[in-house]
Design a protein around this nucleic acid. Structure first.
Lengths: 143, 143
DNA sequence: CATATTTAAGATAAAAATATCTTTTTTATA
DNA sequence: TATAAAAAAGATATTTTTATCTTAAATATG
């Protein structure tokens, strides 16, 4: 469903949501280690999220990655689309070019209700929501 | 969600369900063209499905691929697991090693109901079911 | 039984995804 | 203002997935 890269991106963003702040920025290696993702690779991914303003970064001493207030409102789907592109998540199960309710592929009816439900949640759920969920002990930060 | 390979496998199996029979076997190129999949590649995939008894084949003149009666009862999930393996379809959204209701990853609660619903349908739906659906004009054979 | 047809199997190639390495730029602070 | 710390950018490498090519084995039929 998600590429490895997007999984890393979500883990890292969530890790920032829980552990960083404007005056407690995190350097790459302190993000990579706890979420168990190769350092150089997550660096690239964070760079690209930062360029798209989904997270923030500053260079130099005391620099690092962090979230600004407004970025806690980033939706999970924003991250997915920024990394994997819109096509991937919206493509039909069999990758039919034009699969929709009028011209449904053979698996369309098996999944479309659930797929829409999941997509809606990904569009509504923010990093803050997930952070709160974690703080309440209802889920664990992924390793 | 599915690898390209499994998409091809499902398309080809469905094509066989709709168009072949024990005395109307289809040769590789007559399967590859209509479902729009590279001939040599779908050949390999069909070989492997045949080894696992999900479809049938015979060599030589008048040979080809086809389904036996019982093979119309193949579940879509059987094909998925035969090609992609059980792990891939059952892995959690973030690929946490041990993600379950007791130790849920941060996205677990967003998707588990829907994911279970989809998985159940994939386990219950047979090639015959999908063939009937197509014959009734309710969905189209994927290209 | 020879031949043509067809899948099976094995080897190789190409493309995409994942990962790393090196150099450059920015910036805080001593 | 020199230095060290840190991300940014660019280049390269590795691995996995997807795809092709070649040879071998099986089988129907003249």
């Amino acid at each position: 469903m998600f590429s490895n890269t997007v999984k890393y991106a979500i883990k890292a963003s969530l890790y920032l949501a829980v552990n960083s702040s404007e005056d407690n920025k995190l350097v790459i290696k302190d993000i990579a280690a706890p979420i168990n993702v190769p350092q150089a690779y997550i660096g690239k991914i964070l760079q690209s999220l930062s360029r798209k303003n989904l997270i923030s970064s500053t260079r130099g001493p005391k620099g690092g990655f962090y979230l600004k207030e407004q970025q806690y409102q980033t939706k999970i789907m924003d991250i997915v689309e920024a990394v994997d592109g819109e096509e991937r998540i919206n493509s039909c199960l069999l990758s039919l070019d034009k699969c929709n309710s009028e011209n449904p592929c053979s698996l369309h009816h098996l999944v479309y209700t659930e797929k829409n439900a999941i997509n809606l949640k990904l569009k509504q759920t923010t990093l803050e929501d997930l952070k709160n969920h974690i703080m309440q002990g209802k889920s664990v930060l992924p390793l």
